[in-house]
């Protein structure tokens, strides 16, 4: 079975009440619990807020030093950023697995197959 990385980005509304925050969390928990019960979830982790870097090299191989910029995302305090590693047969199944994710209310999910050679 192949593995897929599902990268989540999005933002939550600011000023949620504690009860509302717990409500959102419970939706994510119910969803991941369902995936885990089917053996489809390997693990998940949060990514740090606002600490992304984009490393590049302007001018291709001739340039002396790589350029490092912040980003790539304009992240705010209320951002939800993280990833899950899912077990799925193919993209069709992987996409089906995330189609009912509560995260879609807050932002997109990027699904990438882990290429194992």
């Amino acid at each position: 079975m192949a593995q897929f990385m599902v990268i989540a980005r999005g933002s939550l509304t600011a000023g949620m009440s504690p009860a509302e925050m717990q409500g959102v969390l419970e939706k994510y928990m119910a969803w991941t619990k369902g995936l885990a019960a089917q053996g489809k979830l390997d693990h998940g982790n949060k990514l740090q807020n606002g600490t992304g870097r984009v490393v590049g090299r302007k001018g291709g191989e001739k340039a002396a030093k790589p350029t490092i910029t912040d980003g790539p995302f304009s992240e705010t305090k209320e951002v939800i950023g993280g990833y899950w590693i899912l077990n799925a047969a193919d993209y069709d199944e992987a996409v089906k697995l995330v189609a009912d994710s509560p995260h879609l209310a807050y932002g997109p999910l990027e699904v990438r197959a882990v290429d194992v050679i």
Partner: peptide, 16 residues
């Protein structure tokens, strides 16, 4: 409020 928000962000992916 920040602690609760952080919990929401972290636990959503990592579990409680």
């Amino acid at each position: 409020q920040e602690a609760l928000m952080r919990a929401l962000q972290t636990w959503s992916f990592h579990g409680v």
